[in-house]
Nucleic acid binder design. Sequence first.
DNA 1: GTCTATAGGGGGATAGAC
DNA 2: GTCTATCCCCCTATAGAC
Lengths: 200, 200
Amino acid sequence: MATSGPRGQYAKTPQRRQEILEAAIEVFAASGYRGGSLREIADRVGMSLAGLLHHFSSKSELLSGVLTLRDEVAIRDFGSMEGPGEERVRNYLRLIIGNESERGLAELYCILSAEATAPDHPAHDYFIQRYEFVSGLMYPAFADLAAQGKLRPGVDPKQATIDLIAITDGIQLQWLLRPNVNQMGESVRRYLESVTTLEF
Amino acid sequence: MATSGPRGQYAKTPQRRQEILEAAIEVFAASGYRGGSLREIADRVGMSLAGLLHHFSSKSELLSGVLTLRDEVAIRDFGSMEGPGEERVRNYLRLIIGNESERGLAELYCILSAEATAPDHPAHDYFIQRYEFVSGLMYPAFADLAAQGKLRPGVDPKQATIDLIAITDGIQLQWLLRPNVNQMGESVRRYLESVTTLEF
DNA sequence: GTCTATAGGGGGATAGAC
DNA sequence: GTCTATCCCCCTATAGAC
């Protein structure tokens, strides 16, 4: 066993793995997990199906790789996880507005989360945990705003967390179906202004 | 040509068609259009694949049948399309609350609408038109409420229409993934109370 | 109206050469 | 690390008997 440095389990060809993951994101975004095929992903990256399966030993493992990669990027983009409530909600809105220029990413989460409502879907547990993660990030933010008197009267932090996530997911679906009709950030901004006394 | 009575184009075995459509709803709800198979639908209704294809000549035609059937039911359930704004938003909320006891239906629309964001999906145009239909139903309701001074200051009827649909779709997805966490009607009710001066 | 049989394609995954 | 060849499964759809 070599020392667990950069030549560990996944040191074979990090670059190749990255290419495969990016192609997989495109294909899964367009056709979902069920509808997307490993052959098409392999074609896009210019290799054979068997070659791809050398790097990811099964379709579901490739999906795991995609989700892990996206989590790393998203967590980095979000910025601080420790700041005050106001900073977090502003970071959230900034992230949603940023997604307006990444249609493929919105497509990916839209189709995967819908597929993953089926209990036997390989990403079922992932999406449940993802909701818990986002809730666990935003609920304290709203609770902090409440403590500072920055929530409007009658607004419950727990409900606000649920509804913020709902309007985010819903506007994303709507944006994908009718790209011309609205901008995602506007709906999320309106929602945040409707539950807080802040301006965004 | 017979007179266009009950023995028209689709009079062969209306009951058989109905059974097939109901099985198709279950299968498409669980696995989506791409993931659902005609064989499984045929099995559920206790007939062969070829037998099924005698009633619906292709998979996409079966999907059309499902969507048409659901539209008929939904339009009937919604009630009056002509009443004042207040009645319409109340009908909308009532419909959403009613859906809480029809999980299969929520699953169906959730997965099909996500799949249908792909331009080549057989239900792509259907879901675009569906958004236009619902918008065309609810925008006049909010506009009427605005004219009666029943919208809160700063609320735009057009934006309210978009956000109402967004929160509805989003809370549905969330409900499917974590059924224990919330009730769909509550989020929609909260939204309606946040944009109007009415009580629900 | 329903069936069996079959065509014809695409899917994920493995074996083994290089 | 990448390939070709192959296995076996499931898919939609059609042909034709009953």
